[in-house]
């Protein structure tokens, strides 16, 4: 019995030491600032910033590849606190505090299909030489279709307020 215990214990200890050593070798260095910034972001992974999620957006912000104002749901308050945290200046004037969605101006659309190819959420439907349409529920207002449209017929609009989508106004910067 003692032999059994000794064998299993020593085997476990040996594997434990190997794993502990491997953990040191394969340690992934992560900037602690990225974790901090990620915890400040809304964490809904909505994709309006153009990144896959809040984690990759935080990484890009810390590396200086993305602007601190790129998070629309966060609004001015978040942009300001991010700018303070990262020590950069932020232009708060373009930020609105209401959600925007895209819509197609039907008299101008030629059905070229370019907008729905770039749409990250598949919110645009349509076919070649057919009028395109934006589903408001799926649109995150990222603005990619606006730049892709050769006819300039897509614009971002403030959604009309109804009882379903009304919410308290976001806190503004004093």
């Amino acid at each position: 019995m003692f032999l059994t215990i000794a064998v299993l214990t020593s085997l476990g200890l040996m594997l434990g030491f190997i794993l502990g050593y491997a953990d040191k070798i394969f340690a992934v260095e992560e900037d602690p600032l990225i974790k901090d910034v990620e915890s400040m972001l809304p964490g809904t992974h909505c994709g309006q910033c153009g990144f896959t999620g809040c984690g990759s957006a935080a990484e890009a912000m810390v590396n200086g590849e993305a602007d601190v104002t790129c998070c629309p749901p966060g609004g001015q308050v978040l942009a300001k606190s991010l700018a303070d945290k990262l020590g950069v200046s932020a232009d708060l004037s373009n930020l609105t505090s209401v959600p925007l969605t895209a819509s197609v101006e039907e008299s101008l659309c030629t059905g070229c299909c370019r907008c729905f190819r770039v749409c990250p959420t598949d919110a645009i439907v349509g076919a070649n030489k057919q009028l395109h349409y934006v589903f408001k529920d799926a649109c995150t207002g990222c603005g990619k279709c606006v730049t892709a449209c050769p006819e300039n017929c897509i614009a971002l609009h403030q959604e009309e307020e109804t009882l379903d989508n009304w919410h308290w106004p976001k806190p503004a910067v004093v």
């Binding site: 085997l11 594997l15 190997i18 340690a27 992934v28």
Partner: peptide
């Protein structure tokens, strides 16, 4: 025991 340790090792390697 060995399989569990090897899997753990592989996970560390892939993570890196």
């Amino acid at each position: 025991l060995v399989v569990a340790a090897v899997v753990q090792f592989t996970e560390m390697m892939i993570k890196k």
